[in-house]
Nucleic acid binder design. Structure first.
Lengths: 350, 350
DNA sequence: TTGAAAGCGCTAACAG
DNA sequence: CTGTTAGCGCTTTCAA
């Protein structure tokens, strides 16, 4: 077990060499030439004493902490944060970095978020990841710019910072395509009412996919509501309880998994069985919901883990001078949203 | 915006004083006596230059980083981690501390978890929080002991480290009591098969609560299964589909919310409506599930936020010498599990 | 091959 | 009331 009170100096004394030599061998400095015997003596002395480096001192000297700051909006309110953190943590760990996490809120004032970034800056993190819990436009604290940083799951209002976001359109297209492939020709879309990128992009993809398949995308039923269970329920009812039975969709694409749950309930109340009478596709792949309802919900997964990892990977590259983030800042990087197939899609009734 | 390249020395020069004075006024050192005029000059010089302290240098000097390490088991697999982190982060922030987070896995080797702790130690965190994602007995990395630390949501195999855990029995008792208060006299328990403290404690509380109410706790039906939806479904079927209808419970207490979902499904298949024909109570209060199924599930909330905050609060007290953790290590601290009432409990049919 | 010494930015004991 | 100075533990230049 390593001993916090042992320094390089103690190792030097024990090994009968200078601190320089200790530093050289322990860090395997390439240009330093140390005899094998000395190396051994140093290493075993270090081992013996339970020496562990003091990263603070090293950082003070090298001007590099090996720490990345992660400011995460609303860590506890969505399960997505965990996946971003995990992706970031694993990518960081793989390259010898660690994460300092600060939680903030999307509704927090710009000053308070600036203070959060300041705390990270005072600790001299090498770079900062700024993660939001859903894809949107954020107004960033100005001091973010004083260190390399990348945005996760959102784009900056100014638009001059490297960002990584999900491929909303591709994901929506995959979901609708799955519905079409199953044979459906009348599919409805239950959309969100919030003015966020996903709302518009998923709608666009919905329409385009239908059109591409030779269906009248413009005429397909779309109902919007608050993006929660209740909204999904109401919107589904509006779509499914139409007068003209012939026109009623046999499949529903839902803005997210929570709305899909609402659709499940609406279907149950109308005596429609899923997937026999109605096919449903969701978005988000919130495991807890999608895998646990019956039948399992086919839905689109958001690449939170991947975004966290990608952002960290590139942030570290920038910190180490291997990449110029400003070159990537022009356009956000878009990561795929794979379809997760479960049991909520089947062929329509003959 | 603060400038990373400005040091205390630059401020001193700008204000025409010594670094000592700058340090004294910026840190509001109590014993130092500085004239108001000088104070003002120092402060405005600092402001002007955009001075921000270098916490690394300060830490190196004071032997205190103001950083707490949080090693969290399986950050992404349960939504609980987020609440622990949030509780810890807010408590830490309130006292001027920050969190370094490292993810690990319950199934990771002792060595790998020891390496995680080592990384924290090298960064000279003042203390460590070790959080697990469900209440159990853990084998802790030995190097954890070299710095003040507290366990969140579990107790140590050795039992000599301060820990905070949920009041499983109290929570279970509250849930069963709610069922009894609604008028039920035949209630069943769908339990977990895992050998974790919760399994035994919730069962004990279930039996005790029935007995205390004058019912035959020992004879109440208990079925165990894997603590997932499917297990809950199967166990519920076993309890509800008994031959002797008179004995069939009118209420079910479920080990967790996922199993409760399974019970919902079993009830639906048997033509039992919730809560009219069957009342159900869960455990965990996984918002995503409990609030989103229909009807909303009455369940017991685990105090993850509170445990995170409590642990942090006391860890900081120990770091600052205000508490002796070893005195608290004798018995784990138990935090309440409040009942969250929704719509899954009603009076039994006449 | 190895070592002496400067200095990263700060705090605090001590001196004036 | 204010300043000088010695480190905190490490890396790295330069010299031997």
């Amino acid at each position: 077990m390593s001993n916090r009170n042992i320094g390089i100096k103690d190792v030097a004394v024990a090994a009968g060499v200078s601190v320089t030599t200790v530093s050289h061998v322990l860090n395997e400095v390439s240009y330093a030439r140390v005899s094998p015997g000395t190396k051994d003596r140093v290493r075993s002395a270090a081992e013996q004493l339970g020496y562990g480096p003091n990263r603070l001192a090293r950082a003070l000297r090298t001007q590099r902490t090996g720490m990345l700051g992660l400011v995460s909006e609303d860590i506890a309110t969505t399960p997505h944060a965990g996946r971003i953190i995990l992706g970031a943590d694993e990518a960081a760990k793989a390259r010898g970095y660690n994460l300092m996490i600060i939680n903030t809120s999307a509704s927090a004032s710009l000053e308070s978020r600036e203070a959060d970034v300041e705390a990270l800056l005072e600790r001299r993190v090498d770079g900062i990841l700024y993660a939001t819990m859903y894809h949107r436009n954020v107004e960033l604290p100005a001091n973010l710019g004083s260190v390399p940083s990348v945005l996760v799951d959102s784009v900056a209002a100014g638009g001059d910072i490297t960002a990584v976001i999900p491929d909303e359109e591709g994901g929506a297209r995959a979901a609708v395509a799955a519905l079409l492939e199953a044979g459906h020709t009348r599919v409805g879309f239950i959309n969100n009412t919030d003015d966020v990128p996903a709302t518009h992009q998923r709608l666009r993809a919905f329409r385009a996919t239908l059109s591409d398949a030779g269906l009248d995308g413009g005429a397909a039923p779309v109902e919007s509501a608050v993006s929660e269970v209740q909204g999904g329920y109401e919107a589904a009812l509006r779509i499914l309880a139409r007068e003209d039975r012939a026109d009623v969709p046999t499949a529903l694409f839902c803005y997210n998994d929570r709305m899909a749950i609402g659709a499940y309930r609406a279907a149950a109340e109308l005596g429609l069985r899923i997937p026999e009478d109605l096919s449903v596709a969701g978005f988000d792949n919130q495991e807890l919901i999608a895998a646990n309802i019956h039948p399992g919900l086919t839905t689109v997964a958001l690449p939170h883990y991947e975004m966290g990892a990608w952002a960290t990977e590139h942030l570290i590259d920038a910190v180490e001078g291997k990449t110029d983030l400003s070159l990537m800042a022009l356009h956000p990087t878009i990561l795929g949203c794979p379809l997760v197939r479960r049991d909520s899609i089947a062929a329509p009734r003959a």
